[in-house]
Write a protein that binds this DNA or RNA. Structure first.
Length: 523
RNA sequence: GGGUCGUUAGCUCAGUCGGUAGAGCAACGGGCUUUUAACCCGUGGGCCCUGGGUUCGAGCCCCAGACGACCCA
């Protein structure tokens, strides 16, 4: 896109979200532009033939034990490349600190160590932020720092804007999200979160592959967005002239695969929910879902514990600190039923756990919360119990805790409990007051599933926009026979938040959704 | 949706009682051949988020709005 607003050239982000006026850097970028022009005049700009021999971290690792004297004798030839992060000019010599994907390394350049005139380029052509390639020999400075003594230094790519401040880095939250490349460039802590995230995802794959699960991809665009209580995004397919919905969950497709005979499947992918933004919610977020035939809710729970134990170990985060509280992710997880948890946290008597009046009274003590948690059409005992749970218990579940015995009304895809029809064989795992995982024995009786869908439809008719939609094709798949199955969904973003100790989902998403800058719609 | 706080130089931040804008880093010029957030001397740089209002005068007070952060629902 890009375009012109008044007389002010803009480089619009793809959505016009991040507008940088040409004047934004004042004369700072003019100097850089002038250097680019000088570089162009010389020819051979933006080359792609520089090859490096080592990453910075490799050099630090391999030469850690090598003394100043030993290095001076050995003359280890290297070529390195990266972004200039620091520069210390000292007349006829200078030090640069460059950074590549692995680490930083110092460069030492002196007039008499480079080809004729080459030293002047460091001042005349290069700036902080530029990408350079350096050839030279390894040395140690008087202070002992491992350094590349340059025999040549070449500009590979120009940075036309000034970098954020070298010491404090980039702090402004909004800019960190809107210009993530700057955040990543400047903030190691931010890079670490996303490295951790990748490790979590790869750890999950390893876990399931070791257990003979098949990784699959199911539709993002669905004719019926079902499988979760959430509002979908709507789109339209032109050729077929039909509405399509971005999925709110992959669940019903994954279970179709189990019907088809893939007895163990998992998917790690995006879900989309048309809801507000908060420190815990982004419209698109990443879920793990897995399904295992001939497993019950108890086995799914055990598998979930094993998974989190393994990920915590794999990422070296067996213990995490959350809001000052120590959480041990390597210990056994607590478990209690929902009615037990609600009674414990609200003082409700156990005999009244399914008594609508008593539940309403208890909820009523949070009067403002009532309409939100349990609107008029949504006040069966099970729904009220669930509303109480969400309002009064959930935030207090800091240490890993499984809650079991969910009311049937709020669990339209879960198998009913054999002894107590009002609850289902379902659990959710809470850590740090947040829901991390949700699993159950799958409802595989097609007739009961259709009934549950119809109950949801009735609720939708009564005004509940989040009620689950009927997926008739899914019911038909169930009619072919879904084996007894257990399954689970786990929020990857929240797990990464937990492991990395950040408190907002935006810090674990590379490009979180933000309101357009300036309040307008992107062009 | 409600409340609180924030938005000042490219970045990180000060800004007194309402009296016309400051520092460090970055930039530019000069000095400096082992520095390391290099240092020393000098220079330039502002839509004080936007729009109204009060006032002789607003970065500062009032109103509305935008965006962000945090809390509540």
């Amino acid at each position: 896109m890009g375009g012109v607003v008044g007389d002010c050239p803009v480089s619009a982000g793809r959505d016009g979200l991040f507008i940088v006026s040409a004047h934004a850097d004042n004369d700072l970028s003019d100097h850089r532009r002038a250097k680019l022009a000088a570089w162009r005049a010389r020819g051979g700009v933006y080359p792609n033939d520089f090859r490096r021999s080592h990453l910075a971290a490799e050099l630090h690792e391999r030469l850690a034990e090598r003394s100043k004297e030993a290095l001076a004798k050995d003359e280890v030839q290297v070529s390195v490349a990266g972004r200039i992060m620091l520069r210390r000019m000292m007349g006829k010599a200078c030090f640069l600190t460059i950074e590549d994907v692995s680490a930083r390394i110092q460069i030492y350049a002196r007039v008499d160590g480079l080809e004729q005139g080459a030293y002047d380029d460091i001042e005349g052509l290069m700036d902080l932020g530029d990408i350079v390639g350096v050839c030279g020999v390894m040395m140690r400075t008087m202070r002992g720092e491992l350094t590349v003594q340059a025999s040549s230094i070449e500009l590979l790519s120009k940075c036309l804007h000034p970098l954020p401040e070298k010491f404090h880095g980039l702090v402004d939250q909004e800019t960190r999200y809107r210009a993530r490349y700057l955040d990543l460039m400047m903030n190691e802590a931010s890079r670490d979160v996303f490295k951790l995230r990748a490790k979590v995802v790869s750890g999950i794959r390893t876990f399931f592959e070791a257990r003979d699960f098949l990784e699959v991809e199911t539709p993002m665009m669905q004719p019926v967005a079902s499988g979760a209580a959430a509002r979908p995004f709507t789109t339209h397919h032109n050729a077929l002239d039909m509405p399509l919905y971005l999925r709110v969950a992959p669940e019903l497709y994954l279970k179709r695969l189990v019907v088809g005979g893939f007895e163990r499947v998992f998917e790690i992918n995006r879900n989309f929910r048309n809801e507000g933004l908060s420190t815990r919610h982004n419209p698109e977020f990443t879920m793990l879902e897995f399904y295992q035939a001939y497993a019950s809710v108890d086995e799914v729970m055990a598998l979930t514990t094993a998974l989190i134990h393994q990920i915590a170990a794999h990422t070296g985060r067996r213990r995490v600190t959350l809001d000052g509280a120590q959480i041990d992710l390597s210990a056994d997880f607590d478990a209690m039923s929902m009615e037990e948890a609600v009674c414990k946290h609200t003082g409700l008597s156990r005999d009244d756990a399914w008594n609508t009046d008593a539940l309403l009274r208890t909820l009523g003590s949070e009067a403002p919360a009532l309409e939100e948690a349990a609107p008029a059409g949504k006040r069966s005992a099970g729904e009220l119990l669930f509303a109480l749970f969400e309002a009064r218990v959930e935030p207090n579940l800091l240490t890993p805790t499984y809650i079991t015995g969910y009311p049937s009304e709020v669990s339209p895809l879960s198998r009913a409990n054999d002894d107590r029809p009002e609850i289902v064989d379902r659990f959710e795992l809470f850590i740090g007051g947040r829901e991390i995982a949700n699993g159950f024995s799958e409802l595989n009786d097609p007739d009961e599933q259709l009934e549950r869908f119809r109950a949801q439809e009735a609720r939708r008719a009564a005004g509940d926009a989040e009620a689950m939609r009927i997926d008739h094709d899914y019911v038909r798949a169930l009619e072919y026979g879904l084996p007894p199955t257990g399954g689970q969904g786990l929020g990857i973003d929240r797990l990464v938040m937990l492991l990395s100790g950040v408190s907002t989902i935006r810090d674990v998403l590379l490009f979180p959704l933000l309101k357009p800058e300036g309040g307008g719609h992107g062009e």
